[in-house]
Design a protein around this nucleic acid. Sequence first.
DNA 1: CGAAAGGCTCTTTTT
DNA 2: GAGCCTTTCG
Length: 725
Amino acid sequence: MDILTTLNSAQREAAETISGPLLILAGPGSGKTRVITHRIAYLIRVCGISPRRIMAVTFTNKAAREMEERLKKLTSGFVRELTIGTFHAICVRILRQDGGLIGINPRFVIYDREDQLSLVKTAIKEAGFDPKQYAPSVIISVISNAKSQVISTQAFIKKGSSHFEEVVGRVYEKYQRLLEQNNALDFDDLLMKTVQLFDEQPEVLDRYRKKYQHIMVDEFQDTNLVQYKLVKQLAGGYRNICVVGDPDQSIYSWRSADLRNILSFEKDYPEAKIVLLEQNYRSTKAILETASSIISANQDRKPTKLWTENEQGELITVVETYTQQEEAQYVVSEIERLLERDEVKLAEFAVMYRTNAQSRALEEAFIRYGTPYKLVAGTRFYERREVKDVIAYLRFIHNQQDSISLLRIINIPQRGIGERTLSQLKNWANSLRVSLYQALQLMANTEGDKKPPFNHRIIKVLSGFYEIIEELVAGNQKMSLVGLFDLLIKKTGYKEYLLSMIDGEERWENVLELRTVARQYDNLAPFEGLATFLEGVTLVSDVDSYDESVGAVTLITLHQAKGLEFPVVFIVGLEEGILPHIKSFDDPAQMEEERRLCYVGVTRAKKRVYLLHAFRRNLMGSSTTNSPSRFLDDIPPQLVAGGYSGLGEESQIRDKSAFWESDIPVVSMDIPELKVGDRVLHSQFGKGMVVSYHQLEGDGEVVVAFPGVGVKKLLLSFARLEKVD
DNA sequence: CGAAAGGCTCTTTTT
DNA sequence: GAGCCTTTCG
């Protein structure tokens, strides 16, 4: 019983309700995660339910990991057999295990957005259309939407009414056939095929139903129809299904998430108990009131009664700057100001924005001030070319039907296999009705008039590639993953290839980082290691690698910020056209989602909120002027420092502009000559060593490793580095 | 065949 | 401003 003593009465009720359907409507900061973890701990420790009979679905892998950590503490250990993960991760496991029954080869690879794009392009062409006339990305999103609602190709074609739908229908059909030929599934397939598996194989479903006595789903407001169906299938036996969500935080409708799932839940489970978590433990009264005033302007919602016992707290700061550069500069100088007052640490700040492009101006300001920051989406490690190349090799070694990977790697590093060679190979493979790789196999293993009609040079280069792959495939039978990795680099000459490039060093380091990731799978059996590794690298998201313990300011999109919290939050770009985004202007439902996005941002904050907007902003080269976001109008002036109520037509900021400029440190002092390996002294970070050095006009950009502090990118003119011996 | 240069189009958010 | 595609030249 002691497990639940730290919970308030509503939380406790939610945690104690273990049988039957349960809907928890949890406002921001209401201890939702606590309730879920404590509920699971209660099931295990008090009710004696085996962890193996519990499934918990989270929104990100990171959330799953954290929940597991917390549970380890609460249950003193034995959570290993718990099924916990995202819908996608859980479905992959199910399909590898049982997908064979609906014709899925367990060696399938998962196609990401980029792979999808090239496959859809092929599909469009094969269906006899022009990819320039029908944007592949649009077609992908229509197909994805269909899959999210478990609409098969046949069903799609049947219901298609417009000409466009007919086109998509035919492309959809081709696309699915291509996926099959490549033995690949896209993200949506992982979910849709699992639902199909359960539909078509009742005895398999029955096995899973019997296994999972308790199912919990977090972030339920952001589930789509296929996920809802899946939950419904699995919970069909015991009906012990607990879903947790907040309609006001639904921000993924563009990914086919459907708020109506909450209504469906109440309808499908009329006996469901509903628990409201309304006490907020996170934010000050001022912040909560600001958030409420923003969200209450939405028409299509039920009113809520969020409250907090926390103090009133600081007023909200609303700032208009002239440009986005000044906006960024304000953020950094304000952070530096608060840091000096010693109340807050670097990691306690977050800067949030609507679009990734906005991070650039921020980054530049952080670099200029030498203020450490971490960009959550920034690097997109797994989308880097060199990382994708190596993964494509590994993927192809795992599954030689994967022609998308084959086409990616066949001429990297350059082997003289160009477009013409490739089209000859394709034609020959098509005429024999075999895959590209089977064609290579035939070419290498047949003699006489069975030989392909290629000239000598082409046969030679293609054979060269084929032999490398064969050797690697053989290696995968007996080597550890890292062993295979190293063999791959050696046989392909990939390291030399990278190092011959201008930014080769950095790229090679990324490959080494990927190798470090691979090491985690090294203790698995040869074949298993590669399979698990590939699964892991395709299903990771940017937030998954986000580490809050790093001492740096967080730069993050509003979408990614969901579920996180920070003492101080800056939201930038509160402008008409940005937040709310221009794409939502003609659709009231989308506009409401923009508002929820703003609400999510504000409710991340514990102590202080800054809302910024710029008068002038550069978008795609040209400069635009935006008026302040309509969301700002909904904040009562008494909550805003200085009683902001819109600056009106005559923006005062133009006069202030000079003030901001004077705040920029002036380049005047001597700039030390530095080179890699030099030791330097920084007034704040102490002693460090120069890791890289870039000469700029009248300045220099250095990356310095400060022991115990971390790696920092600095501009010499601002960082005031001193060279030491 | 491949590197380099020039011209085009878009930009929301992502498992 | 960048990424993608096409064209051109070696």
